[in-house]
């Protein structure tokens, strides 16, 4: 008999109040290992609060979060790669991409005292194929939205996490950049077979690339495949929009208007 593997991420009846307001009102979801799922919802639906709770950044009122069948702890956090929306840096900080990447890798933690050549010897094999080699000398505060997302993903993959959490990853990225970004995510998912959770309100792209979608509005109001969820009345109600599925003849994927 096959033993069912434990899910990568389980959230049970999670409740969080912020400033007296109930933001999460009993969220329950379970992300299977190796799946590419999307967590969607309109502004104020609790997406970011849920993400912060999973990362141990948000106090919870009740409920349970388990990562790879373990309760939240520094050890489980080290198995998660977190990709924030953007960095808080301004241009007065000269941090280069090489230096930022070196902060993460144990072999290059003493980068302040080492030559570029010796940093690159450890760094380049770790970032091969992620398309950031040409950006290493650039100040990180001067990257475009798409370049920064690429760097942040490479950074989060350096320690080979089992789960990748991405918070509104294409917020500062233009439309062509968005497409190549999601293609990169899909390729990482395929090659590394890792669990990926995309938090987004960008429905079109999410429906195109995610295998499973959770729609959040204080609770999980519906879940399913993109094809199923787009038909769901509760999603339309949550967004207050007219969501009309139609299919590209050549791709057979639903789009959102």
């Amino acid at each position: 008999m096959h033993k069912i593997p434990p899910p990568a991420l389980t959230v049970r009846d999670l409740r969080v109040n912020l400033g007296g307001l109930p933001v999460l009102r009993g969220v329950t979801l379970s992300v299977p290992k190796g799946e590419l799922v999307a967590l969607i919802g309109p502004n104020g639906s609790g997406k970011t609060t849920l993400l912060r709770a999973i990362l141990g950044l948000q106090m919870i009122d009740s409920g349970e979060i388990r990562v790879l069948d373990q309760p939240l702890s520094p050890a489980t956090l080290s198995r998660i790669g977190y990709v924030p929306q953007k960095l808080e840096l301004d241009r007065s900080f000269g941090l280069s991409v090489r230096e930022f990447m070196a902060l993460r890798l144990p072999a290059t933690r003493r980068w302040l005292w080492r030559s570029h050549r010796s940093i690159d010897a450890a760094l380049l094999p770790a970032v091969a194929g992620l398309g950031i080699e040409t950006l290493l000398d650039r100040p990180i505060a001067r990257l475009s939205g798409g370049q920064l997302q690429r760097v942040l993903i490479a950074w989060s993959l350096l320690l080979n996490p089992e789960i990748l959490l991405l918070d509104e990853p294409t917020a500062g990225v233009d439309t062509p950049g968005e497409r190549s970004f999601y293609e990169m995510i899909e390729s990482i998912h395929r090659q590394r077979r890792m669990t990926i959770v995309l938090v987004s309100h960008d429905l079109s792209m999410v429906f195109r690339y995610a295998r499973w979608v959770y729609a959040l509005n204080g609770v999980v109001c519906c879940e399913g495949t993109p094809e199923k969820i787009i038909q769901d009345d509760s999603l339309k109600k949550a967004y207050g929009l007219h969501l009309t599925p139609y299919h590209h003849h050549h791709e057979g994927l639903p789009h959102v208007h």
């Binding site: 912060r52 990362l55 141990g56 950044l57 520094p74 956090l77 080290s78 998660i80 977190y82 924030p84 960095l87 808080e88 840096l89 900080f93 941090l95 230096e99 930022f100 902060l103 993460r104 990180i140």
Partner: peptide, 14 residues
Amino acid sequence: TLITAHEDLAHVSG
């Protein structure tokens, strides 16, 4: 340096 870049990222990094 990491706290300056992103506080939450620093926190998640231990």
